[in-house]
Design a protein around this nucleic acid. Structure first.
Lengths: 100, 100
DNA sequence: TCTATAGTTCGATAATATTCGAACAACAGT
DNA sequence: ACTGTTGTTCGAATATTATCGAACTATAGA
């Protein structure tokens, strides 16, 4: 898999982060990543079509919420916890607390 | 003005709150209410059309973020700080910190 | 090199949201 | 009652998102 360009966390706007998190499917992805630490796209798809999921991963990536690194034939995704906490202190924890 | 029905805070979903907060205009309303405590719709409209603003106030109200009480000919809006902190601890503060 | 796997990109459709003028409703003051 | 003020609701146009099949790309392994 090819590597992606991720935004600098300073360039991320709060409105974009909130929008990315306002979708139930994406919230589920974030919650699962919070639990499992790192997971491939297929481990997070819940049986949904790949093209739909690819869209959601892109939204999360563009909002600075996740990092996707290529690993063999797949992408391993992680939360950008530290970046998010630097930029928007307490936000991710509050959302994770709410979704749990 | 007629009184509105506001949702019970328990009935509010995190996704709806995040969606309501993901719009720059609504974020501005929330930030201004956080500063000023209570304000009428016209004090918060930034010169935009009333019907557009009325829509945004409704989204915020339906998401449990603001309370609008009739006062004479106008509506006075406040943040539902305590309710939000009960339901989604830390969320409002994190968003306000990010928008400031 | 052939095949299978994982995921992306494209393109079209459907669903939601936003914007805002016009008509309306509630209240205050005269 | 009439008028001005504040804001809501309706309806329609526009814009943004979401969904997902099909074609494609990159990698691993045989």
């Amino acid at each position: 898999m090819r590597a992606f360009k991720h935004p600098q966390i300073e360039d991320v706007a709060i409105a974009d982060v909130l929008h990315a998190l306002s979708d139930p499917i994406r919230l589920g992805i974030v919650a699962q990543l919070a639990q499992e630490g790192e997971a491939s796209c297929s481990a997070l798809d819940g049986g949904r079509p790949k093209s739909s999921m690819s869209h959601h991963f892109r939204v999360l990536r563009d909002a600075g919420i996740i990092m996707s690194r290529p690993e063999g034939v797949s992408h391993l995704n992680t939360l950008r916890r530290d970046d998010l906490n630097d930029r928007f202190p307490g936000l991710l924890d509050a959302v994770l607390g709410a979704v749990r």
